[in-house]
């Protein structure tokens, strides 16, 4: 199985923040959710993959190609959707058609026009007149019009209403149908990923916590709950992170440990809870 992305031990040092030794692989034909709290380093990692900033260590390959040496080749085949769009506000959607044809050798105007129609975007409108959801659709239309094999989305769903988010998930599921297209999708709205993602990469405070199959990720944690008296030092030592309240506590534990404590209520955790309690745990909250 060939991979769309191979990231190996990459690091980036900023004053006050270090992204350290991030390693993961995205196999071709699958969707990977890239999760972690704000400030964990998700956008930094994505920028390193796209060669938008210089890395301080490690290697990145996209479609098996070293990402700096093959920058142009990779960009031809990669569609990018950022929280902030990268178009000029004054451009109309027709202008974008002309400009993108200069950027991408494989640009197809006819597909772009078809996509605008499908997404109900008026080609004479200016970028600044579009709503957030419409801008997202515009970026997707651009990605599809240069036949991107890889979509990288950075927080695409923040600020979108549930209907628009739902449509996006449909679009992504459709995109990977042929097994040749792949998606890396960073988000903190994890309910979007709970179902549709195949793989999960979870980072916290610049470090990799987990990368692998989503179902295994969810299965490897349990949400445990108990009364105040159940929170013994032994239980505490095995909790990754927890929250105490008047009548008891709840927290996250590795599934293998949760089985040692049959007196605790143990249930399947949401991705949200895994992130929240891991954050609390590593930050000593």
């Amino acid at each position: 199985m060939s991979d769309a992305i191979n990231v190996k031990n990459i690091s980036k040092i900023y004053p006050g923040f270090t992204l350290k030794d991030i390693t993961f692989d995205l196999p071709k034909g699958y969707i990977m959710g890239f999760i972690g709290p704000n400030g964990a380093g998700k956008t930094t990692t994505i920028k390193l993959i796209l060669n938008m900033i210089q890395r301080d260590g490690g290697t990145v390959e996209v479609f098996g190609l070293e990402n700096i040496a093959h920058d142009a080749e990779i960009k031809e085949q990669t569609g990018v959707v950022f929280d902030n769009h990268y178009f000029v506000d004054e451009w109309t959607l027709n202008d974008i058609n002309r400009v993108m044809a200069l950027f991408f050798s494989n640009w197809q105007s006819s597909i772009y026009q078809k996509k605008l129609e499908q997404y109900q975007l008026n080609p004479v409108k200016k970028v600044k007149e579009l709503s957030k959801g419409m801008r997202l659709k515009l970026m997707l239309a651009v990605a599809f019009s240069h036949d991107a094999k890889l979509l990288i989305l950075d927080e695409p769903t923040s600020g979108l209403d549930p209907v628009a988010r739902d449509e996006l998930l449909d679009t992504l599921a459709e995109f990977i149908q042929d097994g040749e297209h792949s998606v890396l999708f960073s988000t903190h709205i994890t309910s979007d990923l709970e179902k549709v993602a195949d793989y999960i990469t979870f980072i916290n405070d610049g470090r990799l916590i987990y990368t692998g199959i989503k179902d295994e990720f969810i299965d490897s944690f349990r949400l445990v709950k108990g009364g105040k008296e159940d929170l013994t030092p032994d239980v505490k030592a095995h909790l990754i992170g927890y929250r105490e309240y008047g009548s008891g506590f709840e927290g996250i534990m590795y599934t293998e440990y949760a089985n040692y404590f049959p007196n605790l209520l143990s249930e399947k955790s949401s991705i949200d809870n895994i992130i929240v309690f891991t954050y609390k745990g590593t930050n000593g909250l």
Binding site: G29, Y30, L169, A173, K195, V196, D198, D215
Partner: peptide, 9 residues
Amino acid sequence: ARDLRISVL
């Protein structure tokens, strides 16, 4: 997977 909105895996 697409129809049920779940992972291909």
